[in-house]
Design a protein around this nucleic acid. Sequence first.
DNA 1: TTTGCTATTGCAAGTAGATTGCAGTAATTT
DNA 2: AAATTACTGCAATCTACTTGCAATAGCAAA
Lengths: 172, 172
Amino acid sequence: MLSILVAAMSLPSVSLSLEQLLERVRRAVPRLTKGKKAVLSALYGAKHPLTAHEIYMHIAKGIHHTTSETPNTKQNLPIDLVTIYRNLEQLERLHLVVKIEHSQTGWRYALTDRPHIHTITCTECGQEISVGECLMADIEQFIAQKTGFTNIHHVVHFTGSCPQCQHHSAST
Amino acid sequence: MLSILVAAMSLPSVSLSLEQLLERVRRAVPRLTKGKKAVLSALYGAKHPLTAHEIYMHIAKGIHHTTSETPNTKQNLPIDLVTIYRNLEQLERLHLVVKIEHSQTGWRYALTDRPHIHTITCTECGQEISVGECLMADIEQFIAQKTGFTNIHHVVHFTGSCPQCQHHSAST
DNA sequence: TTTGCTATTGCAAGTAGATTGCAGTAATTT
DNA sequence: AAATTACTGCAATCTACTTGCAATAGCAAA
């Protein structure tokens, strides 16, 4: 039984260039704006799912600082956080972006169909580690057959007692 | 492969009385208070995972109204919402209660080891339906072996396009 | 039963992620 | 180049949740 689940780990790697992604989004939305491109670029380059605030910081860091020579124009201002929220919401409705988990600092988003990892958090000490690539593909397929939903995605996070904290538990 | 997942749906039913549950908690916590008993009783009687606010309302509804004959004593006052939050946090640390999903109105909690259902929400119209009992047991076992964690629980929620909304999607 | 210890409670104030209204801006079409 | 309107940024707001602290109430020992 476990061997089947392990097999599910070898997900196909997505080899879509950023340019191809932007072209795909351009066809799906009314206007491909600067803010939308910045959000997609941040998610494209991310190794882990990002919160809206992390996307904001990523964009802000990529912008050159203002000096007397380079005044504060529209070009070098960061994208407003509220714009990032609104773009994530729109891209999620179009199934181009998905919520992966609700972390302690808010929802984390990733590009759809990206192979991704999930994490497990110790409810006692707060330690958080990876559990490897996603194992949910079979469950999603089962749900699709049962409910008629398509474009199924999952929000998954695990909790438990890490090896160091196991003796404190009441359930053993 | 799917037949294995379907088999995982027949989880053992938990037949613990409320009294047995309270006794178990009494041994695990320093003081079994009125608030803690009320929270546990609400979760015990719940058919679905509850938010802190839903637990608050459930407790408040179960209390007799104040009249001139029955003045406002400590006995018929509801449990403060902050007390419910603190009890849920404590019970979660002891693995007696678990977060099931982060709904639009906040985290939903359930008693640990209760057979429970998960839901799928349409990202376009917001419709939410059940996907049947939980299929995560095998994945949790795999993670336990890989990470050394015990008392593993999961936070799971699904999203997708419901049959009525599927033509609007950009991903097809 | 009474007493003492301290975990727990309730109130109030605060934090932070996320949302909303609106006037101005900019991406696209013609 | 002009027109249309989707989108942006600012400010204000909402709400789930947390924290500080004095008062209260479980529980155990006397």
